[in-house]
């Protein structure tokens, strides 16, 4: 990947993450908040993949792996707590 494409893509991903965080704050219901937080973590995973793609090191991807698993657990815990009042 060329350097200018990486710079523009990283900048635009940062803009998308900021817009999603504003959506998290301004959401009208709590499930929308959970959904937007899930999307923020997906965008962060994509940003980490982009970084490791550009720098050609795999260390960013460990963080992306842990982040994907943690966001899955957090989304399920929040949604189940919202709907049933308990997680397990």
């Amino acid at each position: 990947m060329h350097e200018i494409v990486f710079s523009a893509a990283a900048l635009w991903m940062a803009v998308l993450i900021v817009i999603s965080l504003i959506t998290v704050v301004r959401a009208r219901s709590s499930l929308t908040r959970v959904l937007a937080l899930d999307m923020v973590t997906l965008l962060l995973i994509a940003l980490l993949i982009l970084y490791s793609d550009s720098r050609r090191v795999g260390y960013y991807l460990d963080a992306a792996l842990v982040l994907s698993l943690l966001s899955f657990l957090a989304t399920i815990a929040a949604a189940r707590y919202h709907s049933e009042g308990e997680i397990f």
Binding site: L31, V34, L35, D38, S71, F72, T75, I76, A79, R80, H82, S83
Partner: peptide
Amino acid sequence: IASQVIARAA
């Protein structure tokens, strides 16, 4: 799975 859990809660 996460999307389905959110839809079920809704």
